[in-house]
Amino acid sequence: MSTTIEHSAFADLDRQKRLLNPVFKGEINPHGRFGFRGELAIKFAVALADEARPPELLAQQIISVAEPEAPKIGFFSCYLLSFGYLESLVEVLADSLDPTGKYFIYCNNIDFSKRYHLEYKGIPFYILPLDEATVYNELLDLFGLERNDLKKLDTAGKINRIAESALQYSSVFPEISYADCLAGMGPVRDPGENRPV
């Protein structure tokens, strides 16, 4: 039996219209595992009249999966412009995260030489730096996946392969508290800086 988003752990986020610009949103393997690749609205902009405005805060470059009929998202990865947005992200995902899940948050303003593991509101997170690269490429490197092997797969197959590695990932990063990570983060950089107009 195929899994639709209504029967996945993404259902509430989809109903709230938070799942944006999907590169992929559907079943990723024969067992009904559901995957999403795209963006998540963390904070909506105030709408004026009928004007549709982009969200004030976004989690970008999401790659995420949930097992069939599972109430929680088992694997979630994304890019945040600032580590400081983690609190708002967790508020949005509060009912969708599990203490046994694997969650990888790439941030623009974390020291590029550092990687951390932290627990926030009972949920474990891997916190990693990201500047010019992509979450997709960083995950391949983190999990030791060969790009040439993934090239042969379609989008669903790529998400599934990354998810398999993520769910088995057990490397140990230095522990840090949320407060210490917040205190040590750098300024939020302008994503449009130094780009041609």
Rank of each mutant, 00 (worst) to 15 (best):
E87V: 05
R37M: 14
G186K: 07
N148H: 06
Y106C: 07
S171M: 04
P54N: 10
L89G: 03
H31K: 09
F104R: 02
I127P: 05
E91N: 15
L86H: 04
E138M: 15
T4H: 12
P196F: 12
L153P: 03
D95A: 14
I5M: 06
E67D: 15
I123N: 04
K17P: 00
E27I: 05
E87I: 01
A133G: 06
T155R: 11
F36R: 01
S171I: 03
A163T: 07
R189G: 13
L13F: 04
F76P: 04
E6L: 10
F10M: 04
M185E: 15
D190W: 09
P71G: 02
K152I: 12
C78K: 05
G192L: 14
P191N: 13
F34L: 05
I123A: 11
L145H: 07
P187A: 12
E175R: 12
P129V: 03
S171Q: 10
K17W: 01
P30E: 15
L81C: 07
F10K: 01
G32M: 03
S2A: 11
L89Y: 08
Q168K: 14
F36S: 03
R115I: 01
P22N: 05
L130V: 08
I110V: 15
L150Y: 10
F75H: 08
K151Q: 14
N29W: 03
G157F: 08
L89H: 06
E87Y: 14
F112G: 01
R195N: 11
K152M: 06
Y120Q: 08
P54I: 09
C107N: 11
Q61D: 11
P191Y: 10
S171P: 01
P30I: 10
E56W: 01
I110M: 08
F112Y: 13
S77E: 10
R115F: 01
E87P: 00
F83T: 02
G192A: 14
P191E: 11
Y79I: 00
H31T: 10
F10Y: 05
C78I: 09
L139D: 07
K152C: 00
A70H: 15
M185H: 14
D149K: 12
D149A: 14
P191L: 10
E193P: 00
V46P: 00
S165W: 00
F34C: 05
P187H: 09
A45P: 01
Y178A: 02
R195C: 06
F75R: 00
N194E: 15
P54T: 10
L81T: 11
P191I: 09
P30N: 09
E39K: 13
D95M: 08
G157W: 07
A41E: 07
A41G: 01
F44K: 15
K121R: 15
Q168Y: 04
